[in-house]
């Protein structure tokens, strides 16, 4: 269970948001909404631990996140705006090195299966440089399929995806929630997800 109390964020001179409270339990999703510049990405980065909140605190399984940082990181999967894809590596290499750096080595069969399901069959060994924008997003999303993480934090996961890919991603997210996973994401479009969820509006 992830719980936030009174989070506040300041960027430069501007106070983006303050007194943000929410909680996400097993099998639940939370969609963060708001206009451009409302601080959606900042909120996700604060929750992931990449940025510091000006105020407020976060709890993971009832304990302050700062005291259980390693344990939290081991349960977390964060996908930001930048897809963390190396242009010079193939989709397969990208997936496997990312997993190894995250400390969860991936065998080739699992990685190949994930890439096939995400719709990159036949392109596993091409340098990602030659892939289209949408295909690159798919490489990044393939990481979801190989992930054992409890909490997924996804920043605009639906951007640059075609209709089929959106449907595929929704079903991947549904499976994660059905497994008892937690999900926190931002999106400009309305998304139909199974399980219980809420939306948080930043203004």
């Amino acid at each position: 269970m992830l719980r936030a109390h009174g989070l506040a964020c300041v960027r430069g001179d501007r106070r983006l948001f303050s007194d943000v409270d929410f909680s996400v339990s097993a099998g639940e999703w939370l969609q963060v909404e708001g206009a451009n510049g409302a601080g959606k990405t900042s909120l996700l980065r604060i929750v992931a631990g990449l940025a510091h909140a000006e105020d407020g605190h976060l709890e993971w399984e009832g304990q302050p996140v700062d005291t259980v940082r390693d344990e939290f990181n081991a349960r977390l999967l964060y996908l930001g705006h930048a897809p963390a894809i190396k242009d010079d590596l193939s989709a397969l290499e990208n997936l496997r090195t990312a997993a190894a750096v995250a400390g969860r080595p991936l065998d080739e069969a699992t990685a190949l299966a994930a890439l096939r399901r995400i719709g990159l069959k036949g392109r596993e060994d091409l340098p990602t440089r030659v892939l289209s924008q949408g295909q690159k997003r798919r490489v990044a999303l393939a990481r979801l399929l190989c992930s054992q993480a409890r909490l997924w934090i996804l920043d605009e996961p639906f951007v640059a995806l075609d209709v089929a890919a959106v449907a595929l991603l929704c079903s991947i997210l549904d499976e994660h929630l059905a497994r008892g996973g937690m999900l926190m994401f931002t999106s400009h479009q309305a998304v139909q997800l199974a399980g219980s969820g809420a939306s948080l509006r930043l203004s």
């Binding site: 990449l50 990181n73 897809p83 242009d87 990312a98 750096v101």
Partner: peptide, 22 residues
Amino acid sequence: AADHQDGTLEQMALSPTPLALL
């Protein structure tokens, strides 16, 4: 610089392995 730009650095910072080791 490249890792910073393409988001790999964020993933490294969130890895359970200490960032100093990476």
